[in-house]
């Protein structure tokens, strides 16, 4: 009986049916960056543990973090954090019941993309300036 009922219920079209839109991609990226940040907490824990263990452990950790792969992962982490943060702010605006007109949604999406890339680059420029200053 359950089978006949299940068969009668329609399926909604899945992702690949739809034309790609920026807002759709940002929604997906918001979730992916969230999962990425979830994994990234392990890096934060490793950094703090290394710092708590002492200079030798910290130098070893920073050696790994300072490698090319380490820098790429950290760049990804900072971008994910910033992108997810701006995505959250967009959701706050929608939570107030505002910003749902199609034009505004599109503008907010582009601001989101540009702001998160700009802030990520600024953070890294600041980081490299710190390296130069040390």
């Amino acid at each position: 009986m359950a089978d006949t009922q299940q068969a009668a219920r329609p399926l909604s079209p899945h992702l690949q049916i739809y034309r790609r839109t920026l807002t759709m991609m940002l929604s997906i990226i918001h979730r992916i960056t969230g999962v990425g940040l979830y994994m990234g907490t392990v890096l934060l824990a490793a950094w703090l543990i290394a710092l708590a263990m002492g200079p030798d452990a910290y130098d070893s950790f920073m050696g790994l973090a300072g490698s090319l792969i380490g820098r790429l992962i950290m760049f990804g982490y900072t971008w994910a954090l910033i992108h997810h943060m701006f995505g959250g702010i967009r959701h706050f605006i929608w939570d107030t019941g505002r910003g749902f007109s199609l034009g505004l949604v599109e503008v907010m999406a582009w601001i989101h993309v540009i702001a998160s890339i700009t802030l990520t680059v600024l953070v890294w420029v600041a980081g490299y300036m710190m390296l130069g200053a040390m």
């Binding site: 710092l51 002492g54 200079p55 910290y58 130098d59 900072t78 954090l81 910033i82 943060m85 953070v123 600041a126 980081g127 490299y128 710190m130 390296l131 040390m134």
Partner: peptide, 16 residues
């Protein structure tokens, strides 16, 4: 999160 980012920048290249 903004504080964390500022902190990471603040300790970039710093010794233990």
């Amino acid at each position: 999160a903004i504080f964390l980012l500022a902190s990471l920048v603040a300790v970039t290249g710093a010794d233990w």
